[in-house]
């Protein structure tokens, strides 16, 4: 086992490095890293652009125990190039998912922290995302529960948002954001009337973890603690829906219903009103305890995904 890094760890998920998250999610001392920094998996693309790389290309992968159960874990380092997917970065995750399917591992914890494709690796990064999606489908088909954890500074954007949506279950904290196009991207392409990226309240009401969990875009909400993500993962793994034609059809029906009911809403508060529920006080201002008392939309709990 190797456990590089400082020993004095705090439990805050947002502040932790990818390696601290991977280690902290698992039983103490049980994490074994695959292709660690000493293997020097640096991106060949970044070097071509005269950019310095990272020895693990910004993703930590490995195996360990979750309450004694063998699981695999992958954690993106959101501070290195925004956690973006490059060719090697993606290949490490694809390999882990394929190994999980081949070895019938019960679960893969996927700690996403990414803005999407690494621009310098454009097509290779896009292909990496596609291969990850394919590998998640194959792993789920083989019975592996793939659990997305979103609570880092980069959130899960671009292809990372699509990857989150393809997982068996999504766990999010208040710091986590999930979407595909980022706020600035939407504003640049569709104009400020479509989405005002400088309106931080709007950005968080639409993409933020608290809203996502209330509206069913995430399956569980946790406080910003590694231990809370761990407990939620343990609770969600047995609930992971099987990946069958029926579950896909159920998900399609669920999303169609959501689109029909809320497709014209321009803000999370409108969705709330449309659902006939009292609009909550600004969700971001609530304490964790008060937030926990809010009821989710009736359809937020589901067997689909």
């Amino acid at each position: 086992m190797n456990a590089p890094g400082m020993n004095a760890q705090s439990d805050y998920y947002y502040e932790a490095s990818a390696r601290e998250r991977a280690q902290g999610l698992l039983d103490p001392g049980s994490f074994t890293e695959f292709m660690g920094p000493q293997s020097r998996c640096l991106s060949p693309h970044l070097a071509q652009f005269n950019l310095t790389g990272a020895f693990d290309d910004g993703i930590i992968i490995g195996a360990g125990l979750l309450q004694g159960m063998p699981v695999y874990v992958a954690a993106q380092e959101g501070r290195f190039m925004g956690g973006a997917f490059g060719e090697l970065h993606g290949a490490k995750l694809v390999g882990l998912l394929r190994a999980a399917a081949a070895h019938k591992i019960t679960a893969v914890l996927l700690a996403l922290d990414t803005g999407g494709v690494r621009l310098q690796e454009a097509n290779a990064g896009e292909m990496a995302i596609s291969e990850v999606l394919r590998a998640i489908v194959a792993a789920r088909r083989a019975g592996v529960a793939v659990i997305a954890l979103v609570g880092g500074r980069a959130g899960a954007f671009g292809g990372g948002g699509i990857i989150a949506a393809s997982c068996s279950r999504i766990i999010v904290s208040g710091h986590g954001r999930i979407s595909v196009s980022g706020p600035e991207v939407i504003e640049t392409n569709k104009g400020v009337e479509e989405f005002d990226s400088k309106d931080r309240g709007l950005v968080w009401r639409v993409t933020g973890g608290r809203s996502r969990a209330l509206l069913g875009g995430a399956d569980a909400y946790v406080a910003d603690r590694i231990s809370a993500f761990r407990d939620a993962a343990l609770a969600q793994i047995p609930n992971a829906p099987p990946f069958t034609l029926e579950s896909l059809q159920a998900e399609q029906a669920r999303l169609s219903q959501r689109l029909a009911a809320y497709g014209t809403c321009r803000d999370a508060t409108e969705i709330w009103r449309q659902a006939g529920l009292e609009p909550p006080a600004p969700v971001a201002d609530l304490s964790e305890a008060d937030y926990a008392g809010l009821s989710r939309l009736p359809e937020a709990d589901h067997d689909a995904r």
Binding site: N2, P4, G5, Q38, A54, R79
Partner: peptide, 10 residues
Amino acid sequence: RRLASLGVNA
């Protein structure tokens, strides 16, 4: 100790 890794390239 054989190996230590710390910090992030940011």
